[in-house]
């Protein structure tokens, strides 16, 4: 219990991932949906860093860096698209988007 091993981090990562999944399925507002995806990415980052530490291998940290880079570009493009959508329809609800076919 006192000694923190890889499993501790992996369990934590799982819990956070599950929380993120709940958020993805529950949220209606697209911005809140983005928040939930950030949680998913972060939980994966934790497990990457933990594996990297416990196997003495830097690859996990490298992957975490690339995940952060992807998250940053996701924000830039995603927010840009959202702004376009919001300017056109004054609404960023997910249900509204699925209704507007074509």
């Amino acid at each position: 219990m006192i000694e923190i091993g890889l499993n501790h981090y992996l369990v934590l990562s799982t819990i956070l991932f599950a929380i993120g999944l709940v958020g993805v399925m529950k949220r209606k507002n697209l911005l809140m949906l983005f928040f939930a995806t950030e949680i998913l990415l972060n939980s994966v980052n934790i497990s990457f860093a933990a594996i990297s530490h416990y196997y003495g291998d830097l690859t996990g940290q490298m992957f975490a860096f690339f995940v952060i880079a992807i998250a940053a570009s996701e924000v830039a493009v995603g927010l840009g698209l959202l702004i376009v959508w919001h300017k056109r329809y004054n609404n960023i609800d997910l249900d509204f988007m699925t209704r507007m076919k074509g």
Partner: peptide
Amino acid sequence: VYSGAVMALYAFGMMFFDTTREVQEK
């Protein structure tokens, strides 16, 4: 990156989309 930039961008987006308060749920 996350706290300094990404979250600030989200905050900016929140002001832009006028969702600074209550959000509706599915």
